[in-house]
Design a protein around this nucleic acid. Structure first.
Lengths: 362, 362
DNA sequence: GGACGCTGGCGAAGCGCTTCGACAAACCGT
DNA sequence: ACGGTTTGTCGAAGCGCTTCGCCAGCGTCC
């Protein structure tokens, strides 16, 4: 009769622990959760028994009794045009952060659609939901509102009312890139953005970056042309050729597409335009990537790690019924490296440049 | 008193459904699971009630009562040198396949280590485990054996006894690449492999590919030099320069590293070696990538999609207590494209090549 | 025509945990 | 010395589901 739990599943149960430690089941539970005071001696004894028996609480039972699964769902995009490495960074950051809050992560792919979300949430498999790759008019947004489970979006929909969103401030990122180029005297810049499909489906970050670029350009009296850009070498090549055919005086490039950077460099080389002497280039890409390129790229990284961590923290706050801000936008950080220099027909106001190309106007 | 379940969680419970349909709770359960015969009329009525109330079974309760969580764990690598896009492909394939078997996927990262696995498995959060990126002497292998939960490895450890493993037959893949090159008359080939760290930690696929290359080379009287290769442009450049400095007569290249392909092409171009006229190149990379490169690459893809699907199928089989083969190796498939041609000093036995460069021996 | 097997359905006993109320025992201030 | 807290522990009632045993009604076969 004793040790009954072991018979069925092979795992010791909380009852086994209680028996072994000579206390009540509830005492074990409280010793573990700390929700009521338990004397030092008892707690030690309980913990010792737990270790001896190799006890691990049964997740299902715990979820059922406490109405908390200690699992959050992470909805990842699978679509074309996403930046796989960045998504991966998010995912790992989220998993790591969640573990620090004693939660696990259930992986969902967006292609299961809203029905998947509903199933997961209604079935109480997860306590909360993290959604990546949010579009401006995302179908999942109204669903999340109605679902009644805490959620955090990574990305920024058009209407964030009543939601919690975290993202890099891509608008600002676009501005920062242009400001940097403008400061170096570039008067004509281009944004090589995300693939056309990404704009078409209204993905927030692409639109916001473009808007930021346009706005800053207008403010600084810079001409800006923006064009989408696929991720394969051939299309990049075509785009770049076309760009310089139409606007030969473009001297500053913002590339928002890690996968396109290599091909862009190749295309520029083929056109005989040197970086940074003839063309300055700012990339939106991970620092590590920027460091390893040659020349090292002036870049604005997407702080996936931090966004993921923030998202989890906010979700935990909501799970604890604490208030959370609707929108959290992280300030972009531009690191100057070797791919940008003063414009060929340099600006009057720039006095010196350390690594400036021969085009510096002095 | 009635509708009690709705008070606490807002979700209807099975009791609500039973009441609404005018049947017993167990009848609803059986109607849903099909584990006992239920008359057509009753089942229809139950399903109608379910739909009306928007009922979703509570996952925790179900897991507790049935001892089945309907969740599998996926352990993803996070380490350096992994091919992020490929990992992502695996992950999505696994999620999709798992859903088809009515299971969800819990995401674990290897950096939680064995303790994470133990926690998950012992706590019955998951029914089974899928482990990626297995090393030849992986610490997790003994753990998996002792864990007492079904598991499937993606990869192949040195000792697969008592386990279930799925992978591409990388040994064969190495052979196939060399055989293709040898058939085109190349007498001296090189393998640009994974980063050194990957070999150092004994990752199966890297070692097996290398062995396959060496073996096939010996068998066909071809000289083969193999060298590791980091993923940044600078290192690739150095490796390639060095390679051709030491072995100027290398005319066939096997590149097992998607990220290195671009830089390798650049390096070859810089050395004035044309692909495929001077140097033939076979890549181990996704078909899509090979298609978009220029020239289009002769390649052996890693069929992540299929491996993931197989892995899930095998795991489901084990969950159902059916026997599963210890080792499943998928036959590699080489697709000839435009990056390989007959060797510059062409072989006598080759008669014609459609896209062969000027080096064809005729 | 009565013993027999099927089919379809019911009720209740858990699954392993959390949580709540109850309650001794120790600790106060006065 | 005595009511009143506080502290530490126990027991029991679920959480929402699955599953097992049981039984009522049928047709079926000597």
């Amino acid at each position: 009769m004793t040790g009954r739990g072991r018979v069925a599943s092979g795992q010791p149960t909380i009852a086994d622990v209680a028996r072994h430690a000579g206390v009540a089941v509830s005492t074990v539970s409280y010793a573990l959760s700390g929700k009521r005071a338990i004397s030092e001696v008892t707690r030690i004894r309980v913990l010792a028994s737990i270790r001896m028996l190799g006890y691990h609480p049964n997740a299902g039972a715990r979820a059922l009794a406490s109405r908390r699964a200690n699992v959050i769902a992470l909805v990842l995009p699978l679509r074309s045009g996403i930046q796989v490495p960045v998504v991966m960074q998010f995912a790992t950051a989220v998993v790591t952060a969640a573990r620090r809050h004693d939660h696990d992560v259930l992986l969902l792919t967006s292609d299961e659609g809203p029905e998947g979300l509903r199933r997961i949430a209604a079935g109480a498999l997860v306590d909360g939901v993290l959604v990546m790759d949010v579009e401006l008019h995302d179908v999942r947004v109204p669903l999340l509102r109605e679902l009644g489970r805490p959620s955090v979006l990574i990305g920024l929909p058009a209407d964030s009312c009543g939601l919690t969103c975290v993202d890099l401030d891509f608008h600002r990122a676009g501005q920062v890139c242009v400001e940097h180029l403008a400061g170096l005297g570039h008067r004509r810049v281009a944004l090589l953005g995300a693939p056309a499909a990404v704009y078409d489906r209204g993905t927030g970050f692409a639109h916001r970056t473009r808007a930021g670029v346009a706005e800053a350009a207008a403010r600084h009296g810079v001409d800006a042309v923006t064009l989408p850009c696929e991720e394969n070498a051939a299309d990049v090549r075509r785009r770049v050729d076309e760009l310089f055919a139409r606007h030969p005086d473009v001297s500053g490039l913002v590339v928002q597409n890690e996968a396109a950077v290599g091909p862009v460099q190749a295309a520029l080389a083929a056109l005989g335009r040197r970086v940074p002497q003839d063309v300055s280039m700012v990339a939106v890409c991970p620092d590590q990537f920027a460091e390893h390129a040659s020349p090292r790229l002036t870049s604005v990284p997407v702080p996936a790690e931090e966004i993921g961590r923030q998202a989890v923290t906010l979700l935990m706050r909501k799970l604890a019924d604490e208030p959370a801000p609707e929108v959290t936008l992280l300030e972009p950080r531009l690191t100057v490296r070797d791919s940008t220099a003063t414009a060929p027909d340099g600006p009057a106001e720039v006095t010196f440049t350390e690594d400036g190309g021969p085009g510096a106007a002095h």
